[in-house]
Write a protein that binds this DNA or RNA. Structure first.
Length: 263
DNA sequence: ATGACTGCCTCTGGCAGA
């Protein structure tokens, strides 16, 4: 079963690209971020034509997350990240699909820093870790998928020098991400590509795409029950090069019986 | 090279993104 995450940078502007990606790669579940639409304008019918059921958490103008599931209704388990009643940004949605709990996460960017946006990012990270610990205790197979807005190490960016003062690489951001991994969550792409060099984002500016000046900020973190089932993971890089593409590429994991696992 | 883009909701320019 393939589970994917895709920061689409506007579900309405990106709809043809998104639909063709679903048709071509056929993920069982797709987590979307930055849908940038209010709930009433979410194009659920278009996904329905391809057999996908959807839940979504929208917001006017920016942010917004969704979960699509092929042939089955996602069973929503959480809308909005717990831990701060004053936080009204649409950045977290969670559902159970085929017995797997799946979160679609759009972690705050955090720039500029220092300042309230960076503080919000770090506080959001703390809340995510606390909620993830609760999910862990439930022992339901879980995948925390989305745009974490963290470049985990210098192996995850084309050049470590270019954005050294950026919220994506600051030690506080990297430490917060590392704490999730230390809690036991497995970074699927990172685990299978220890040498690094895998990108999920290329800026629209400065010829970043044709020069392959990218970095890795979209992650799928797996609970042990899911990590044991991990057979492959990758990036649909080619989709980044198409007309009117998102600045992110889709990232996916394939779960199933591992051929070498003991019976 | 100090440059370079894109979407959104219009206050069609300012904000947000990364």
């Amino acid at each position: 079963m393939k589970i994917a995450t895709f920061n689409i940078n506007g579900v309405k502007a990106r709809l043809p690209r998104l639909l063709e990606w679903l048709e071509e790669t056929q993920p069982a579940v797709a987590c979307l971020q930055e849908i940038k639409t209010t709930d009433d304008a979410f194009p659920a019918d278009e996904f329905g034509k391809l057999g996908y059921h959807a839940i979504w958490h929208g917001q006017k103008g920016f942010n917004g997350v969704a979960i699509l599931a092929h042939g089955v209704e996602p069973q929503e388990t959480q809308r909005g990240l717990p831990g701060d009643d004053a936080d009204d940004q649409a950045r977290y949605l969670e559902a159970e699909v085929h017995g797997i709990r799946i979160a679609s996460i759009y972690l705050p960017n955090g720039n500029p820093l220092p300042g309230p946006k960076f503080d919000y990012k770090l506080a959001w990270f703390d809340r995510l870790r606390a909620h993830a610990a609760q999910l862990w205790q439930s022992e339901v197979p879980t995948i925390l998928a989305g745009d974490y807005n963290v470049i985990p190490t210098d192996k995850d960016i084309w050049s470590g020098r270019v954005i050294e003062e950026d919220a994506l690489v600051m030690p506080q951001s990297r430490d917060a991400y590392a704490r999730l991994l230390a809690d036991g969550w497995a970074d699927a792409i990172g685990t299978l590509n220890p040498e690094g060099g895998v990108w999920t984002y290329w800026d629209y500016q400065a010829g970043a795409w044709p020069r392959d000046h990218g970095f890795r900020i979209d992650h799928l973190l797996l609970s042990p029950e899911c990590a044991d089932q991990l057979v492959a993971a990758g990036v649909n890089k080619e989709h980044r090069g198409r007309d009117k593409a998102s600045d992110h590429a889709p990232v996916w994991v394939e779960l199933g019986e591992r051929p070498n696992s003991p019976r």
